[in-house]
Amino acid sequence: MRIKRSLATALTAAALTLLTAPVADARAAAPGTEAAVAPAAVPAPDGFLYAWEHPHAGGFHCKWSGPNGNWAGCQNKVSDIWNNGFPGRAEDVKLFRGTSWSGSWVCLHQGHSIPDLGAHGLRFFGPGEGQGEPVNDRIGSHLWVDAC
């Protein structure tokens, strides 16, 4: 009985590790080039939040290393997002529905990527205008925060 219990505990811990690990998503180093990262490797953090117009790094993209209160060219046009920020202080990103960090928000943890926001179904959950709306094509600003 002890062996079964130990095996069940080990399998549960392994499953939780897999389910909570950051998404490994090899991204292109520069527009128009192939990704130089093996599919099983996780790219090293570079301190940027990346956003693309279309799912799976398609179309034009924007990137930021700090907070931005007005996404301008990317505002309400993003279907793929990736937090490749540095771990530690200000590692998570709050994505806001409106400009100037207004409206409802949702959080993207350090190292996480959602390559297809439309298919994922993520919705704004923080209090404010836009709460409950899908995040796909509806982000207006972001802040780097210590934790969400």
Rank of each mutant, 00 (worst) to 15 (best):
M1Y: 06
R2I: 13
R2H: 10
I3G: 02
I3C: 04
I3P: 00
R5E: 12
S6R: 13
S6C: 14
A8K: 14
A8W: 09
A8L: 15
T9R: 13
T9S: 12
A10V: 13
A10K: 09
L11P: 02
T12M: 14
A13P: 06
A15P: 01
A15L: 15
T17N: 04
T20D: 03
P22Y: 02
V23Y: 01
V23I: 12
A24V: 15
D25L: 11
A26P: 11
R27G: 07
R27W: 11
R27T: 09
R27S: 13
R27M: 10
R27C: 12
A29M: 08
A30G: 03
P31S: 12
P31R: 13
P31I: 02
T33A: 08
A36C: 07
A36V: 14
A38P: 01
P39Q: 07
A41D: 15
V42M: 09
P43A: 10
P43N: 03
P43H: 06
P45S: 07
A51D: 01
W52V: 03
H54R: 12
H54Q: 09
P55V: 01
G58D: 01
G59R: 12
K63V: 00
K63P: 00
W64L: 05
G66L: 09
G66F: 08
P67K: 05
P67T: 08
N68H: 15
G69R: 10
N70K: 09
A72N: 07
G73P: 04
G73V: 10
C74G: 03
C74P: 04
C74I: 00
Q75Y: 00
Q75T: 04
N76Y: 10
N76E: 06
V78M: 12
N84Q: 08
N84K: 04
N84H: 11
G85N: 14
F86E: 10
P87L: 07
P87R: 08
R89N: 04
R89G: 11
A90S: 11
A90Q: 10
A90R: 14
D92P: 06
D92K: 02
V93Y: 02
K94F: 13
G98P: 03
T99V: 02
S100A: 13
W101H: 14
S102Y: 04
S102W: 05
G103A: 07
S104H: 09
S104W: 05
S104I: 05
W105L: 11
V106C: 11
V106K: 05
H109C: 03
H112K: 11
I114Q: 04
I114F: 01
D116T: 12
G118H: 06
G118Y: 00
A119S: 14
H120Y: 08
H120W: 03
L122V: 04
G128Y: 04
G128L: 06
G128R: 04
G130W: 03
Q131M: 13
Q131R: 15
E133Q: 14
P134H: 05
P134G: 07
P134I: 05
V135S: 08
V135I: 12
N136H: 11
N136E: 08
D137S: 09
D137F: 05
R138F: 08
S141P: 06
L143P: 00
L143C: 03
W144Q: 06
V145M: 08
V145Q: 11
D146G: 15
A147R: 14
A147G: 14
A147P: 00
C148H: 07
